[in-house]
Design a protein around this nucleic acid. Sequence first.
DNA 1: AAGCATTACGGCGTACGTAATGATT
DNA 2: AATCATTACGTACGCCGTAATGCTT
Lengths: 307, 307
Amino acid sequence: MCNSLGESMLDNLRGMAVFASVVGHGSFSGSARELGITTSAVSQQIRSLENELGVVLLHRSTRKLSLTEAGESFYEAAKDVVSAAEQGRIRVNQLRDELAGSLRIATTPELGVHHILPALSTWMAAHDDLSINYLADNHYVDMIDERIDIAVRMSPSIDDHALSSYPLTDVRQLLVASPQYLRQHPKIESPKDLSEHNLICIELTKDPAILELTQTETGKKTRIKMQSRMHTNNVFMATTLAKEGHGLIRVMEMDVRKELESGALVEVLTGYKLPSFVLYAVTLSREQQPAKIVRCLEVLKKYFQTN
Amino acid sequence: MCNSLGESMLDNLRGMAVFASVVGHGSFSGSARELGITTSAVSQQIRSLENELGVVLLHRSTRKLSLTEAGESFYEAAKDVVSAAEQGRIRVNQLRDELAGSLRIATTPELGVHHILPALSTWMAAHDDLSINYLADNHYVDMIDERIDIAVRMSPSIDDHALSSYPLTDVRQLLVASPQYLRQHPKIESPKDLSEHNLICIELTKDPAILELTQTETGKKTRIKMQSRMHTNNVFMATTLAKEGHGLIRVMEMDVRKELESGALVEVLTGYKLPSFVLYAVTLSREQQPAKIVRCLEVLKKYFQTN
DNA sequence: AAGCATTACGGCGTACGTAATGATT
DNA sequence: AATCATTACGTACGCCGTAATGCTT
């Protein structure tokens, strides 16, 4: 490839920084000390710069330096280059190291309200330089387009291998119903009893009515398809329906913790378990993340470890 | 030499320019085309920059680029770097190519009034963007300290070999006197007759009263020391004294042209000549001079060639 | 004599191009 | 199929350090 002459801005920049340092110091050797290079290197840079610009920038008389008119003018620009570069570095370091700027977190409304907000609330409060932006949507969002720093998602939807994911916690699924419902319907003592019951479907998986039950003691697995006449894509609605005694729901443990404690809902088939989900935090890249992202992931991880 | 990490401003600058171009274009390949390098080079620059900064600047999804928060901030700085560099180059090119800015010319008051001003007056008038600064002093001036672009000096004081000099013209020295003086004093027909005359010394050379006369026809040289009771460092004063009949003066032809034409002074010993001076224009460096300096030298040269 | 700038020379690093790969439309 | 980004790899130029030289105080 023949680069006839002058690649415009690409070249020179190094020389400009050296030049700015030289003028600022008033000497080649002083500049060299500042830059951590030899006076030889400085001299060569200046010479090369002058050759490229086709003009003498400073007259040297061994003991004194004196800017030419062009040099004086160019010095202003060189100073600007250096200061802009420094500003950029400073700003980037801030954004990388300090808990400041913005942090964009995507999740579903349910996960957000019940888990993410509680997990981060004290941390958020402790860092008021940080502006946190929650994008709570049920539909898929493009992390790049929406500039999401952290998405919290359920397994196993990690098909995008460009993303890196951090497992936060196993999320057990439970089969629950209201005590009222259970009193009014046939007892459930083994998986096959389920066929006489209604399932209120939360459409998280493709075949929501098919249950894969594993006997806790023996590990024996059973697949069973329940009848289901009510469907919703919303956990709140499903739990409400269940509390009102309309049927069983397969639901994540975290989403019904309060109801289980209060007795508004109770688990059925306690000797069996449904396949767990894994709750993942997902980021766009694993390496070289700003501190706020790393810290937020840590906070999330710790929160789910202790709950 | 161990450069542990990060040489502050010296590095990165290239990468910053590339980064600015990439963001400005919205693509690596577009930037590559603009910069005249391959996308490979662009990719490597960005990667290297990100590694050095320790932060991801932009997320790439093959078809789309998206700045991270740090990237967005850094982009501002990168733009500033590039635009400062461009401004510098533009300004320097102006000062190099256009007849604008300032031009500092040093000479003696006599040379200035009689020769430099006439030589440059029309040229000056034709370029009103050019501000010309005449430093007319009899004492020595440091060209670097005073930021002189062009000095006009007499030979042979070119002892400073760091300077480059352009011969403008030979300046003949003449021995002249007023007609009145010549009528009232002994005839001068050969060099030895001079011993009976007075020389009004203009102190340009070290031994102003010693004349080296060369016979025009034969080339035979004669050295003679004249008496001298009047001294001055000023040509005007000397010519005035001569016109008033106080003695002979050894003077440059250019300085007494008018008087010779009007007959106020006449040359003596026309068959002999004094050693010529050479009038030099002197600059600080020979290469890579701004256009205005080169042009000014040309104007001076042409002026003296045609006079 | 000491400090400074310039130059030549040589070595090391790195910035680049080529080519192959994978991703996206 | 076409365009785009990334990566590995080899090369060549560029940057820099060493050392010698010259200049200034």
